[in-house]
Every structure is written in structure tokens, then in C-alpha cells.
Write a protein that binds this DNA or RNA. Structure first.
Length: 383
RNA sequence: UGGGGUGUAGCCAAGUGGUAAGGCAACAGACUUUGACUCUGUCAUUCCCUGGUUCAAGUCCAGGUACCCCAG
């Protein structure tokens, strides 16, 4: 098979390329560049802005070294405009609405398994491969997305929004490998990046002071932090959009009581609502509204399991259908920290059924905003 | 300027003569291809100031000082 491997400069994609080569495929590599700090006005909190060589060039050099070591051709392709238009604008819009989006899921949907796949086809490669820890298997002659064998690294959550048809054209060579085996292979090959630290942080943007990064695009706007249980102002925030539900760090609320957790926000009034202790009922919900659901299978279950965040355990859930893409996901046992903007991803055992965006969460039949409104329907008192 | 009370880290707070608990926050690290959560670690040679008693003072005594409350 002719396969184009997305080579990032990290260990995983390097080993993926090597494995495909060993299997006798006709392999070429491509390095994607999707973020340009100066072009994208990414100034605040950018630790590498002044560096002579930007981290992405270092990654490219690493990828080049890998390709050379394996004797494979390396293409280079920019998706900077596509990333901005399709991933980043959506990301910012969601933040402006007070939600917490998952940019990496958008990146996989629009860039890696759309634009990049198209690019590969045009280049004459009908298949693409990446270093994702996920598995594709034919079940009843239909390609399905499954969890990786390495359950600790499984990244199927991030792939829930990719086009179903794309599954036919993707190869995940790391599907059955543990991370430590991948590293072992890399070091046996004497790859220069064998010990390179796993990358974390937003896809293509990297590990950053997140608040400072957002300040480039969402201006700081100070406001009050209010204790939802008594409507008292107990602190100040630098911008309600910078916080996410369930967040504890960065509130700077000292003194008696605590710890304090963000439980909701009022974007219009610029108020951040917090409650004491993680055990408080404000973070719990029994159901949520999920929209834009991307189905990866033909199955439409009424019961299955779900993850509401990456690396969260699978929770048993029941599904009620508003329509094909709009679901009410119910979990009467209650789950903490289900957050609008994040993705609800459904599974049946190992099979990833698909995912959609959490639009609202409900507790005792009330939406989060209704609950907050009910609790704050008295004037806020200065403390 | 009569009475009472209180001053311990950024905040809250133990400690009542024997060599500064704990919590919150902050910071650092781990974990993590979202954002969180979580875990680990760091964080007062010093207790409002000055002097005194004592082998030993955050703790006792004296004076000063700041703030709070009550009465004027």
C-alpha cells in the first residue's frame, strides 16, 4: 500500500513510519506546520518567540533526521490558514460563549484527517498513517475505531469527530503497542529522538501558560468571583473566559474555607461562580445535552459507556435521541465536572461509537444556568 | 486618650515557658497531545516594636505602637 505518514518529530510517528516500512509498504513522510506565532499574533506568554529557531523548526529537523535515518522521503506542508479558519476560530468562538472547547479534536477532524488526507491523495497516497494510539478494525467488513491496546495511552477520544469515511483510509501502526515498546524500538533504531519527551499541550501550539496564550485573542476583563452558596464576592478574576468548570488553580482565594472550585460563569455579567470543596453538588450532573454528534458506527444504542474528558474512566450511560445528532446522555449515578464545550465520547467496550459537543448539563432537571440563576436571584452583597 | 479586646507567613489559624501545627493561596515538579481535576515537593532562624525576668520567651513583666468593640 502507498501510505503517507504524518511525521511530527516525536517518537510515536517515527516508530509508526518505521513499522510500516518494515511491513513492506511504500512509505513517505510529511511534516505539517499549522501554527505560525508571528503570523497568528501569538505574542503574550510565548516563551520561544525570541528563539533563533522556533520549536516547530526543531520538530521539523527531528522529523527530517528520522526520515533520513529510515531512508524515506519527507514532504512538508503548511495548513496554517486551514488551522486558523477551521480549528482556531471555532476554538475562540466557543471560549467567547463561555464554553471550554477541545481544539485537538477539531484539529483531527479538520486538519489531520481532512486536509492532510486530501493532500495525501493528491500526492498519490490513498492511505495515511499517524502515531496515534488507536486501532482500526474491520467488523462485518466495516472499519471501526477502537481503543488502543495500551489503555494508558489510548487516544481514541481525540478521534471521535473524524469523518467516518476516513476510517477506510487510515492506518494506526501503534494500535497494539505499549508506549514503552515504542520507545524501545526507537532506541534500538538509534533514532535521535528516542528519548524525546512526549509532547503535551494544544496540538501544534504546545505547552503554554494557557491564560497568557488566550489573552492574545480574548482580552482580559476583570470581574468578581462570587460564592454561589451565599452570593458573596470573595475574589476577583482576570477574565471569566479564562476559567473552566471544575478548575481550582489560579483563583487566588485565600483565607478560611476552601479549596474553591469554579462551578459556572455568567459571561454577560462577567461573574465567575465558585463553590467550596470538590464534593459540592454544584459540580455534579445527571445528564447532559450533546449536539453535533459524529457517528462512527451504524449502531444507535440506548445504553453504552461514555467519557466526558480525555483519560476519564468509562461511565455507564443511557441515551435518549432528540434526533440523529442531538442526544440526551443520562447518568443517574451523577458525574462531576461535565463541562459544556467538552466532548462526550461514546463507547461500546473497545469500540468508539463517536462523539459530540456537550452543550448543557442538568442536575435535578435544571440546566446549569437555570440553577445559577435560581441561586443568585438576589442582589449580590459586598463582603 | 474612660473601659474591654486583638496583633503569629499573602490570607485564615494552632500554640499559655522548652526551641513555630494545620488549612487556603502561591510557586515548582509529576501526570497529560484540550482545559481541568489529582499527586508530590517548596514556602516564618521567627511570632507588631523596645526593654526586662529566666538556663530557656510567640508564650511572663514593663513601656510603646496599630487595629477593633463598648461607652462618650
Amino acid at each position: 500500500m502507498k501510505i503517507l505518514v504524518g511525521l511530527s518529530g516525536g517518537v510515536d510517528s517515527a516508530v509508526a513510519a518505521y513499522l510500516l516500512q518494515q511491513q513492506g509498504h511504500e512509505v513517505a513522510c510529511a511534516f505539517m506546520r499549522n501554527w505560525d506565532a508571528s503570523l497568528n499574533n501569538d505574542i503574550l506568554g510565548n516563551p520561544t518567540l525570541q528563539n533563533a529557531i522556533c520549536p516547530q523548526e526543531e520538530d521539523y529537523n527531528d522529523a527530517k533526521a528520522v526520515a533520513d535515518r529510515l531512508g524515506l522521503p519527507l514532504y512538508r506542508i503548511d495548513f496554517i490558514k486551514e488551522y486558523w479558519d477551521e480549528v482556531f476560530t471555532t476554538f475562540l468562538t466557543e471560549y467567547q460563549l463561555g464554553r471550554t472547547p477541545n481544539p485537538d479534536i477539531l484539529c483531527n477532524k479538520y486538519i489531520k484527517f481532512s486536509s492532510f488526507m486530501k493532500y495525501a491523495e493528491e500526492l498519490g497516497y490513498p492511505y495515511i498513517a499517524t502515531g496515534h494510539y488507536a486501532k482500526i478494525a474491520r467488523i462485518n467488513n466495516i472499519c471501526q475505531l477502537l481503543k488502543a491496546d495500551d489503555r494508558n495511552k489510548d487516544q481514541s477520544y481525540f478521534l471521535c469527530q473524524i469523518p467516518k469515511e476516513a476510517l477506510e483510509k487510515i492506518v494506526f501502526p501503534l494500535a497494539e503497542l505499549d508506549k514503552h515498546e515504542v520507545r524501545r524500538i526507537a532506541s534500538e533504531l538509534n533514532l535521535s529522538i528516542a528519548a524525546k519527551k512526549d509532547s503535551t499541550g494544544i496540538c501544534f501550539i504546545g505547552e503554554r501558560n494557557f491564560r497568557e496564550f488566550l489573552m492574545n485573542y480574548l482580552p482580559a476583563k476583570e470581574g468578581f468571583i462570587v460564592n454561589i452558596d451565599n452570593n458573596k464576592i470573595i475574589g476577583r478574576h482576570t477574565g471569566v473566559l479564562y476559567y473552566t468548570i471544575g478548575q481550582r488553580k489560579g483563583l487566588s482565594i485565600g483565607g478560611p474555607g476552601g479549596p474553591w472550585f469554579v462551578i459556572g460563569k455568567d459571561v454577560k455579567q462577567n461573574i465567575l461562580y465558585v463553590a467550596e470543596k470538590e464534593t459540592n453538588s454544584w459540580l455534579k450532573s445527571e445528564s447532559c445535552l450533546v449536539t453535533g454528534f459524529n457517528w462512527l458506527t451504524a449502531e444507535r444504542p440506548s445504553e453504552c459507556t461514555a467519557k466526558f474528558r480525555y483519560r476519564q474512566q468509562d461511565h455507564p450511560v443511557q441515551i435518549r435521541y432528540q434526533d440523529e445528532q442531538t442526544l440526551i446522555v443520562e447518568y443517574p449515578q451523577q458525574i462531576s465536572g461535565v463541562t459544556p464545550g467538552q466532548e462526550a465520547v461514546l463507547y461500546r467496550q473497545d469500540i468508539c461509537l463517536g462523539g459530540g459537543v456537550i452543550m448543557d448539563v442538568y442536575h435535578q432537571r435544571l440546566s446549569l444556568n437555570e440553577r445559577i440563576k435560581g441561586a443568585t436571584n438576589v442582589s449580590i452583597q459586598p463582603n
